[in-house]
Design a protein around this nucleic acid. Structure first.
Lengths: 138, 138
DNA sequence: CCTTGACCTTCCCACCGTGGGAAGCCCTAC
DNA sequence: GTAGGGCTTCCCACGGTGGGAAGGTCAAGG
């Protein structure tokens, strides 16, 4: 039974900035915080829990939309674990797509950089390749 | 010596949308296009070349700032190829950082998903882990 | 010549997620 | 009672892209 926290304290304790806490509340990820007569928001342990949940999910690359879905499942004690797993795996698939895209870029750039002698002469296969600009696929 | 292109034709030929062509011009990545008396922009082969350069650089994940740097080097016929190579390798380093961050997320999520039985029972280690929310590193 | 439809112009607004900062009130410790 | 830090709301910015409104222009066909 501890004293309620101010938004700044909740921010420090959760790793979510005060600015973002207000924003998440406005988005509906958090229930509207109760207010002191002065208008100050108050937070308790349950709110901290939810904030840390959000923080962790963001660290795992979930979008706020995805987090909203996760929170809905979290709030529903009768959810099937399969639902959560499906969400997680769909996100993994998305992350893999991004990773592959990046890997492709790295491969191309490494290949180009390898053929660039990198001295003070001006000719450079990297720029030449960029300039070549093969026919745009779309 | 062909007829100048309209912005729409340049867009189709370069893979950069008309909207983005105007935007890039406003940003200074492209020189202001000459105009017909009606105000229509006109593009020639050199412009197409530059647009395809930008398109390709974006496909390789360069930011518009990075592209501005690349274009400056491209425009400077006396640049040292080492300068270009340094830019490219710095970008590769950045891409690698992103790829590693994503790989970490994937690893964590896969580990969690593996321990989630994924049936219609409600208990789920994925949500439990998110909820646990270890002390925020910052 | 005139209409039609595709194209162009500028302008503003949206997304996502986050931060900066102004103007003004509140709370605590001295 | 005053100083300082914290809180409130509000608007604006970033990067990069798209949507769409309101209006002018072009080419082809009748």
């Amino acid at each position: 039974m501890s004293r309620p926290l101010t938004i700044g304290e909740a921010a420090r304790a959760s790793g979510v900035s005060a600015k973002m806490i207000r924003h998440y509340e406005a988005l509906g990820l958090l229930p509207p915080a109760p207010r002191r007569p002065s208008g100050y928001r108050e937070y308790d342990e349950a709110d901290l829990h939810r904030l840390r949940f959000i923080r962790r999910a963001r660290d795992l690359g979930f979008t706020l939309d995805g987090i909203a879905d996760l929170l809905a499942l979290w709030d529903d004690r009768t959810r099937a674990s399969a639902d959560v797993k499906a969400l997680a795996l769909a996100h993994v698939a998305e992350l893999r797509r991004r990773a592959e895209a990046i890997a492709g870029m790295i491969a191309t750039l490494e290949r180009l950089a390898a053929t660039c002698h990198g001295d003070d002469r001006p000719d450079c296969p990297i720029l030449e390749d960029l300039a070549a600009g093969r026919p745009p696929p779309r």
